[in-house]
Amino acid sequence: MSSVPLSAQLINLFASVILLMAFAMLAQRRVLPLINLFAIQGAVLAASTGVVAVTTHQAHLYWSAGLTLALKALLLPWILHRLVRRLNVKWDVESLINIPTTMIVGIVLVVVAFNVALPISQLSSTISRGTLGIALASVMLAFLMMITRSKAIPQVVGFLAMENGLFLAATSATYGMPMVVELGIALDVLVGAIILGVFFFQIREQFDSLDIRHLERLKDS
């Protein structure tokens, strides 16, 4: 145990915090704290990437750590904050399933994710290999959050948190994707968030609410 380098311990710690944040988001009832939790997750993700960068001396990881910090921890939360204020939807987060049930489902998902990731992380040689399971778990938890929330903004936060989990997977399994790909992904996420922002206003204009349950008229039969 004592032979584990400090950097690996730090990465594991950060990964655990990311998982904790994923659960916290799942349990959070209000919009603004939800966005703050998302920002914290982004910041921890950037820190974790930074530690991997320092340990492995890979230049492009510094860039992606910086990009993550700028985009996921600062810019996107700021945009979301502004949206929440402009749309004045501070208080309405509702869950379709009650939160304890969601949490239990979440735990099951974590167990599944860990088991799926186990054979793969055993093949890996990166110092952060253990976190692949956590990354997959975060993706699944974000997915669960998107399913169980009925309001537009939490769904989007779930979407972005899913991206966080994928990013963690990329750094933990392979020290990040090639730079071109990473830039492309970042651009897509940013454009996606902006388009969604435009969308919120359109939905509001049409329905006077951001409740996705209004969007259930299109059905078969």
């Binding site: 537009a152 769904q155 969604l196 939905i203 049409q206 996705i212 209004h214 969007l215 259930e216 299109l218």
Partner: peptide, 12 residues
């Protein structure tokens, strides 16, 4: 409303 719903579903 219907097209917004479709687009939202499509996006998510």
């Amino acid at each position: 409303p219907a097209s917004l719903e479709a687009a939202w579903k499509y996006f998510i």
